[in-house]
Design a protein around this nucleic acid. Structure first.
Lengths: 340, 340
DNA sequence: TGACGGCCTTGAATCGATTCATCGACCGCG
DNA sequence: CGCGGTCGATGAATCGATTCAAGGCCGTCA
């Protein structure tokens, strides 16, 4: 793609020569134009335009030390939950003229580590990470090297690292209580791997709510481990259909899974909510508009992002803070026999 | 967030000193370990670990000139269409050990320019851009400076710049022909600003199909300009409901708009497809699962991304290529009076 | 006239990793 | 014993922008 002739990038000294000034002056025009007389400034600007000069960010940064860029590593960039969180972050950062670089770990600790290193090598001011594993040793090490760290959608296991999270235990419990209230006794939970904190916590909430209601979680609950997308929901329901004693209510760990579940239940000729009640998590845009409008646990996605960015941008000497938002159950038709 | 004491980042010479070797040797351990004797290598590696040294990417890159990173600028990162395209790109790049930096221009030429400069300053190998405006002057300038450019979801106006696109004219025409075939005579098109090429092209296809059928586009078509999300769909339908001669079929420029349209039609007590037929664009995951499964024009999103990355990664001397994919109409219930 | 202050401009030093010409040590062979 | 060759290690030069001490110029005031 680049033209054959690999011309050297034009540098600040090319500009200086072309304008008949020193490199220092060009740099001043670029960074502190007020310190340069209007005449020379104009000449330098003309030279810059003529040579179509673009600053070399690496050199600039090498000298300056650190830049106004923050990195974010989320679990899955194609999940609407995370895109909304990301937008929140970006909005807040842009207000302070910071730039955001986003990466998706795809729940792979190795990818997380890789991007973390990439960000660090490029001298980001800080990173906001949704950790793939519970250990945050590696993040502490990063912070040790002077880089800001904020945990995203994850409560901090240590006091000294700021974090922004939503109470997933409560979210799981809310969904479960609702299903119990509707009279269901045999529940299924289409969940992700327990190594993912959000999944483990929501499960805990589910079990808590069952115990609270005097039910034995091991008996009243079937947990199916699935991938966290629509295909996972499909697979999960297939597994349940074959089971001898089919649950009457299914709680899905996120709305994408619920989408797949809904699709598969309908194909199997089962009615939602009459044959099977369904509850999702996240309350994404389309949840209300599905074939059967989906009951879901809503999280303050956007605010999660802005708040995290807030914590990131505070001075380096501010004490760590731990923010926990509460989720909210949005009841729709998929879990209530009488239309909502 | 960063600790009070602003310690200088440990550098390669710190490592060298600590291990009792020269900087050149440390660099060799890092880049060409085979040229270092096992003994010293081990010592250096120990020093690296002990000091928890992280390469300074800026310095590295300053010397090396360019890196294995490419940038992508899409119109709207929260649109599932673009997240899928992005995944395609990333998948292909990862195979060649390249890294991707994604940014969203939000259809703002200024933001596009800003990110373009940011990428260039950081020495990316190339950029893949969904242009916000039809002019690609600024992209040609970037290429002039030796940076690869591939147009994403946009046919190239010039021979020399590679591009990957989907035939939007045909997509618009397909949707329209389908609605005409269903017997509709008054159509509405909820479209975005014509400055967005995709929107202009789809409109052209719509008009083409109308003319083809012997209809006068100016008479048979109502076009409403809306924002390209669910809220836009809602606003668009509201505008139509007030119109004296309500169209019987609505074509939406993407599925998010269609989602909002569907929601609003239902709230207004109108049945889809009996009162109003609806067709979307993109065929996103949830299109088939909506209250009324949505007829939509499917685009090869993932392939669009991988193919673009392909073009990006070819050597700099390969001739430009222009790939055009064909969309595909997926008919569902929202546009057919008899259930699909 | 000379001293002084203010305003621009200069250019060498600096950031940290990479590269490469050079050197030393060591081995094998004649 | 001497020579050529190999392997490993060295460290100065380099990339390009920024910074800052130093110097030049001009006008003002005593």
């Amino acid at each position: 793609m680049p033209p054959r002739t690999q011309h050297r990038r034009t540098s600040i000294s090319d500009v200086a020569r072309h304008a008949g000034v020193s490199v220092g002056t060009v740099s001043n025009v670029l960074n502190r134009p007020d310190r340069v007389s209007p005449g020379t400034r104009k000449r330098v600007e003309a030279a810059i335009a003529e040579l179509s000069f673009v600053r070399n960010g690496s050199a600039r940064q090498l000298r300056a030390g650190r830049i106004t860029t923050v990195g974010a590593i989320v679990l899955d960039i194609s999940n609407p939950f995370f895109t909304d969180v990301t937008r929140g972050i970006e909005e807040r950062l842009t207000a302070d003229d910071y730039t955001l670089m986003v990466a998706s770990s795809d729940r792979d600790p190795e990818r997380e580590a890789r991007y973390l290193r990439l960000f660090e090598e490029h001298g980001v001011r800080g990173v906001m990470v949704v950790p793939t594993a519970d250990s945050i040793e590696h993040l502490l090490a990063v912070r040790e090297r002077g880089i800001g760290v904020v945990l995203l959608d994850h409560p901090s296991p240590v006091e000294s690292v700021s974090s922004v999270a939503v109470d997933d235990v409560n979210g799981g419990a809310m969904a479960t209580r609702h299903l119990l209230d509707q009279g269901h006794t045999r529940l299924a939970f289409l969940n992700g791997a327990h190594s993912i904190r959000q999944c483990a916590d929501r499960l805990e909430g589910v079990r808590l709510a069952l115990a609270e209601a005097g039910r034995d979680p091991d008996e009243a609950l079937v947990e199916v481990t699935v991938s966290l997308d629509a295909d996972g929901g499909e697979a999960g329901i297939r597994a349940l259909l074959d089971a001898p004693d089919r649950p009457t209510a299914v709680f899905c760990v996120n709305d994408l899974v619920a989408l797949g579940a809904l699709r598969t239940l309908r194909r199997a000729g089962l009615s939602v909510p009459d044959d099977v009640a369904l509850v999702g998590y996240d309350d994404v845009t389309f949840a209300a508009e599905l074939a059967t409008p989906l009951t879901s646990v809503r999280q303050p996605r956007h605010e999660l992002g802005t708040r995290a960015a807030d914590l990131m941008l505070r001075g380096g000497d501010a004490p760590a803070e731990h923010v926990v938002f509460q989720p909210e159950l949005v009841v729709r038709e998929s879990s209530t026999s009488a239309p909502a």
